[in-house]
Each structure stands twice: as structure tokens, then as C-alpha cells.
Design a protein around this nucleic acid. Sequence first.
DNA 1: GACGTATCATCTCATATGAGACGATTCAAG
DNA 2: CTTGAATCGTCTCATATGAGATGATACGTC
Lengths: 166, 166
Amino acid sequence: MRRFKRSIIDTNEPPPLRLSKFLPYRISVAAESVSRAFAARYEAEFGLSIPEWRVMAVLGEGAPLSTQAVIAATEMDRVKVSRAVIRLADKELVTRAPHPEDQRAQVLRLAPQGEALYRRIVPRAHALQAELAEALTPEEIVLLGGMLERLRRRASRLLGEDGGAG
Amino acid sequence: MRRFKRSIIDTNEPPPLRLSKFLPYRISVAAESVSRAFAARYEAEFGLSIPEWRVMAVLGEGAPLSTQAVIAATEMDRVKVSRAVIRLADKELVTRAPHPEDQRAQVLRLAPQGEALYRRIVPRAHALQAELAEALTPEEIVLLGGMLERLRRRASRLLGEDGGAG
DNA sequence: GACGTATCATCTCATATGAGACGATTCAAG
DNA sequence: CTTGAATCGTCTCATATGAGATGATACGTC
């Protein structure tokens, strides 16, 4: 039997894995807590789900957007966006118009009521974010933003590498 | 009319809100990307969902645990844990025994097949985490862990403050 | 001991999610 | 123009989720 350099690797025991220290777990738990808190506020104060709020947010930035642009800007899939837009249209917060250059597509924009609600939400959203951000220093916030973006890209690459083409 | 230092605040327009810069949004998007990537791997390579993997992970740390201990250790709700345990028991990866001091409760531990699978998963999980962590420096990883924990606590407080008692 | 309340894991049910199907429309190639 | 593949937003359907109900058990008070 060949002899290798003695090391912990030689034993049958795997190196320990503490779930509580595991990065994907920690990100998921933190994100879920934050989403829960914000979802509860948006629902209680404005009657909006998070997907609905995201659509409002990107349309509130000013320019009318195609559904595809909203999908890209909110990082949500087309079904989620479709359903959020349907609900927002039912509430008369968003209008859907035919796209002038493509009859399959739509142009979305905030309806007057939507603009009014948007103006009410924005300061509240800023305040809530500020409350959350009290957990961090301003430098940490900047650093966190960069890290999250890098993690997102790396994770997308990881996903794409294996069974990507289902 | 009193005159304030001229600033954008004086106008009727709310301060702009860019969704893409919004902290809760960025955390959510990053976490979703990471979860998706890891869920795909666990499913493809081991046939486990993330809730199932989490239960395996905490039981694999060694000691048998009550269901309540698993709920606490995995930060999942009791329904999610219950279902994950049922599936793991069906696959004969986990055993359920009556709790010696409380007939309502159970003691969970890895079955022999579960231990074998656990030993296969651990190095893979470490490798996947390492691949993800390549997006960050070692110092950033430590800092990120602390920030996520502080955000989680702050978010829990935010949630508890309003409609907490539903 | 008997009773009422609390907690255990599970079940029920209403909602959320997303992969794939779908009809409508666009575009590329002849 | 005609044809066929691609893309639009929505619908369908199977699965995931979690609040509340449920039956079993435990505990505190009498």
C-alpha cells in the first residue's frame, strides 16, 4: 500500500463544515430577513408586493419602458413582471400602450395615480434603507455593493457552467 | 418666505431613487443568483434541495438534533424543516426517533446512507464555496460575514417593530 | 389526579413561483 | 410575397411556500 504524507486529508473524516459559517447560507439568510422586512412595509403601507414595487421603481425613474426593459432593469423573469404589471394596471397605477415599433410589445409608464403613489413611496423607501444601513458604516455600504455585484456575476457564471442548457 | 440654502430638496421632486443602487434590491438579487447556482449543483449532483441540504448539513456536524434544534440551526420555518425531514427519511438519509423526554418531539440523525452522502457532499460544498469566494479577497469574506449578520439582525428588528404580531 | 394552556410535528389550503405551451407578431432568407 | 424560425406577453400547470388548523403530548395550577 502506497504511503502518502500524513495529513488530515488521509483520514476518513471530511473537513468539518459549519452551516452557520457557509457563505451561500449566510447570504441567503440575510437577504431573506431583509426582503421579509421590506415586503411587510411595502404591503402594509402601500399595498404593493416586492415585484410590484420594483416595477414602480424603475418606471418612476422617468422614462417609459418596454416590458423587456423592465425585465432587464428589475432582474425578474418575464412571468413575474407580467403578473406584476397586470396587477399594477388593475390598480390603475401603470398604463400599458402598444409599442409603436413592435405590435407584440408594450410600452409601460406610471399612470397619474402611480406617479402620486411613487412620490409617496420614494421618501419612505429612502428612510427604510437608511434604517437598514445603520447596521453598516458608509464605507462598508460602498464595499458591500461592490462585493454583492461580484458575487452575483460569479454565481451566474457558476450556474451557466453546468446544466445551463436545460 | 424663509429662504433656505438652495438645494434639490426644495423642489417638489422627490430625491431620485435608482433601483439598481438600492441596498435591499442588491442583496436580494445577489442572494438569488447564489442560491440558484448552488441549488442547481446540489440537485444535479446529489438530488437534494437546499432545505434538504441544510438539514443534512447540521445533522452532519455530529450530534443528533431535535427538530426544534434543526429549525434553529437552519433558520428555516417548521413547515420547511418538516417537509425536508420527511423527504430525507423517505430517501433513508435521515432517521427519526422518538424524543426520550418528550413524546411530541423527535430526535433526528443521519442514517448510514446519509452519512455516506454527507461525506461526499462536504468536499464538494467546500469547493463550490471556494469558487464563489474567488470573487472576493479573504479579508472581504470576513468583513462580508460580519456585515450580513448585522443586516440580518437589523432587518429582524425592522420587521418586529411594525405588524410583527400578526 | 383533573383541567386549561402551551407546544410538538404535521396537514390543509390559499398564494407564489417559474418552465413550457401558446397565439400573435416580427424578421431573415428565398 | 411566402415560408419558417425567433421573440413578444400571457396562460397553464406542477411545485414551493407558509399561515393557521389539527391531534397528540406536556406542563402549571388547583
